[in-house]
Amino acid sequence: MIFTLNTGRTIQQGNNVEMKYHPDYAKEVSRCHMNPLDMLDLGVMDGERVRVTGPAGSVVMYVVQDETVSHSTVFVPYGIYANQVISTETHGTGMPDFKTTEANLEPTEDSVLTVPELLRALGGMPYVA
């Protein structure tokens, strides 16, 4: 099912902004907030996982039931998970489509990668003190 991916700041994302290797950070920014009706349509329950696929690729996230999210959109606290699917296209403005990326969601049994795993997949070498 196609949804519009909306990203944005949250207080937990802000609190963890200087500690990106901490599990709390991953926990916050890998949450895909969904309207309960959309969850029903997609056949997922709170805490289950979805594969989110967008123009730049795909990533697995946890589903969080959230009545405040509108139909056919999903909200993800902005960070490294959402950025796995968002394209670098800025339409000549310098600004990627952080709030308007069309993404396909499907239920999955695959696990949610950790932040270090995501970094390695892009050729990075995570630093752990």
Partner: peptide, 11 residues
């Protein structure tokens, strides 16, 4: 911290 906030292909 651009790696957290840029689309992955930029990162």
């Amino acid at each position: 911290d651009p790696a957290a906030h840029f689309p992955k292909d930029a990162v």
